[in-house]
């Protein structure tokens, strides 16, 4: 007994170190799997408030630029609206809306790490929930991963865990959008079969397979493409429309029918 106590006393620093290391490693390894990063995310109120304060100060610096961007977006939307034939006749009823939109501001963004997250200043109080899509005027940004009462963290498309259904515009050939961590302005589209004819400059948009994003939200254009090692699928590099290093405003998309879709899908797979 004496020896055990002596041993512990002698190596108490080492034991403490191993213990703390073990805690930290456990948290790290747990966060590597999807949706487990409950604790270490900046949606908690402490970090949320710190980032909100810092955002309140720094947001003044490029108000001008941001206003111009919003004006351009308004212009584009007005153009679509005025060229519609049934101007202002359309009654928006509950049965025809599939998506509702929540606006939010980006209070924290990173793009230099392998796993990047964006923090928004809207949370469950405003109706934000896990697995909602996040876009801005130019294209997609990511998917909501965690929410607190007034903040939400978004798994950016610049995240090795991200995997989003995307297709080539005006066709039905789709693939999955991933990121190889190399460049903050380039993402990769895989699993597009080789029989598809591709051209550099083709537009890539979100596909209809996902219950998170509406179809045809812009992502980027094809920068270069190559066949993969087994020569049956393409490996496509896409340059994003969005400049992921400079983001301010975002829209969170809530698919009202998502639960219905998921329920139906799980019934179908389980009911076999």
């Amino acid at each position: 007994m004496q020896q055990i106590i002596n041993f512990i006393l002698r190596y108490k620093n080492t034991l403490l170190y191993v213990f703390l290391l073990f805690i930290a490693l456990t948290i790290t390894i747990q966060s590597h799997s999807y949706h487990k990063s409950k604790f270490f995310n900046s949606a908690n109120s402490l970090s949320g408030n710190i980032y909100q304060t810092s955002f309140n100060v720094s947001s003044y610096f490029n108000l001008n630029q941001e206003n111009k961007r919003l004006l351009e977006e308004n212009l584009r939307l007005r153009n679509i609206l005025f060229n519609q034939n049934k101007l202002l006749d359309t009654v928006i009823s509950d049965s025809t809306t599939n998506y509702t939109v929540i606006s939010a501001q980006i209070i924290k963004n990173s793009y230099a790490k392998p796993m990047n997250y964006i923090t928004l200043n809207k949370g469950s109080k405003q109706g934000v929930a896990q697995d909602m899509g996040v876009i801005n005027a130019k294209g997609i940004l990511g998917i909501v991963e965690n929410t607190s009462t007034s903040f939400a963290t978004v798994q950016s498309i610049l995240n090795t865990k991200s995997n989003i259904n995307a297709k080539i515009k005006n066709t039905d050939y789709f693939g999955s959008l991933i990121w190889n961590t190399e460049d903050a302005n380039t993402v990769q589209l895989t699993d597009v079969p080789r029989l598809v004819k591709l051209h550099v400059g083709d537009t890539i948009v979100t596909g209809a397979m996902s219950s998170i994003f509406p179809e045809n939200i812009p992502i980027g254009t094809i920068k270069e493409f190559d066949l993969n090692s087994s020569k049956s699928y393409y490996k496509i590099n896409i340059s994003l429309f969005n400049n992921m290093t400079n983001l301010k405003n975002a829209y969170i998309i809530n698919n009202i029918k998502r639960e219905e879709i998921l329920e139906l899908e799980s019934e179908t797979t389980n009911g076999k």
Binding site: L20, L21, A24, I27, I50, K113
Partner: peptide, 28 residues
């Protein structure tokens, strides 16, 4: 000192969505 370093790394991770890798490195 080791515990304080753990806390230091912990706070950095807490605020920057980086799992607990700062903690591991700092404690080490």
């Amino acid at each position: 000192f080791i515990i304080i370093s753990f806390l230091l790394g912990f706070f950095i991770d807490f605020l920057s969505d980086s799992m607990a890798i700062n903690t591991v490195a700092t404690v080490s």
